[in-house]
Amino acid sequence: MRTRPEVYSPLQNTGVWLAAWLYNVESTDDTVQALTDLGGPHSYQGLPMAHLLADVRSEADLEAPEPVIRLVLWGPGQAATLRAGSPAMEALTPAGALVVRGASGVNHILVPTYRERGVTWRWFEDSERLPEPEWLTPGEADALLSRATNEAAVLIEAAGGTRAELPNPRLAVGTLADFYDTPGLPAGVTPRAAKLFARADVVAATVETVTDRLGDHSFDPQLFGLWRHIRTARMAGVADAVMDYRREYLAS
């Protein structure tokens, strides 16, 4: 099993860019370029990305009390917060989904499929209330991720540490962390969310370096236990960024 799909999804930055665009913080051109950088050309019902953006704009409730864009990630030990047996759940890939909050409580669920030649989107609607996410604050998610990382480090150190077969494992971690951040975040992202994304990137890069680059699976149980906290941190960061855009929008 490769680590990256479990600790990283382009949808983290995609969700934040869509929110920045919806709340008029970023232009359409810059948003399209960022989403293209995140996965290549996008298609929706056989049409270009502009048609997806138009539908998102027409359906999104920008004044909803909940985040108008919500990131859904899932994996081992963590169920997706979509209705079991629903068409959206059946279509879900390891990349996750974005939930757009619409008028009258309708949830518009955007499910992408990432391929080498680009991204294909499917659109689902669900009028029933979705399972509640954890709704952690950035501080709570950061504390959980930090504590889990420290506990894993203690266990690994007590067991004698990992092999260091790379010329510079620390450099490898830094390089991967830079990859996770590409192509960056839109303007106006809260420092709280940016910090949370950065911590999640570093922890994800560390896990990938040990398991995939070093090929050391001695500590898989300790490292795999971090996956849930990495995903949760990413979802909490997106929710915080989206709600801050909402506050600025309503105050203007």
Rank of each mutant, 00 (worst) to 15 (best):
D181S: 11
D181I: 05
D181K: 14
T182V: 15
T182Y: 13
T182E: 15
T182K: 13
P183C: 06
G184C: 04
G184W: 04
G184M: 04
G184K: 05
L185Y: 11
L185A: 10
L185G: 01
L185R: 08
P186F: 01
P186L: 01
P186N: 04
P186V: 04
A187Q: 14
G188I: 14
G188N: 14
G188T: 13
G188M: 14
G188D: 13
V189L: 15
V189T: 15
T190S: 13
T190L: 09
T190H: 03
T190N: 05
T190W: 06
P191I: 05
P191K: 04
P191Q: 03
P191G: 05
P191N: 00
P191C: 04
R192D: 11
R192K: 11
A193V: 07
A193P: 03
A194G: 14
A194V: 08
A194Y: 14
A194R: 13
A194W: 12
K195L: 15
K195D: 15
L196K: 02
L196G: 07
F197L: 10
F197T: 09
F197I: 12
A198Q: 09
A198E: 09
A198P: 02
A198C: 03
A198F: 08
A198W: 07
R199T: 08
R199P: 00
R199E: 13
R199A: 11
R199S: 09
A200Q: 06
A200Y: 02
D201L: 03
D201N: 13
D201H: 13
V202T: 07
V202P: 01
V202D: 05
V202R: 09
V202G: 00
V203W: 00
V203Q: 02
A204Q: 15
A205R: 04
A205L: 05
A205H: 07
A205E: 02
A205I: 03
A205G: 06
A205V: 06
T206C: 01
T206W: 04
T206S: 07
T206E: 04
V207Y: 04
V207N: 00
E208D: 08
E208I: 02
E208R: 02
T209R: 03
V210F: 00
V210C: 00
V210Y: 01
V210G: 02
V210T: 02
V210N: 01
T211K: 08
T211E: 15
T211F: 07
T211M: 14
T211H: 10
D212T: 10
D212Y: 01
D212A: 08
D212K: 00
D212L: 04
R213K: 10
R213F: 14
L214W: 07
L214S: 09
G215L: 05
G215Q: 08
G215F: 03
G215K: 06
D216F: 01
D216K: 03
D216C: 03
H217R: 11
H217Q: 10
S218I: 00
S218E: 00
F219M: 03
F219Q: 02
F219C: 02
D220N: 11
P221H: 10
P221A: 10
Q222K: 08
L223R: 04
L223M: 05
F224V: 12
F224P: 05
G225P: 06
G225S: 12
G225Y: 08
L226F: 10
L226C: 10
W227A: 15
W227R: 13
R228A: 08
R228K: 09
R228Y: 02
R228P: 07
R228D: 05
R228S: 09
H229P: 12
H229T: 14
I230S: 13
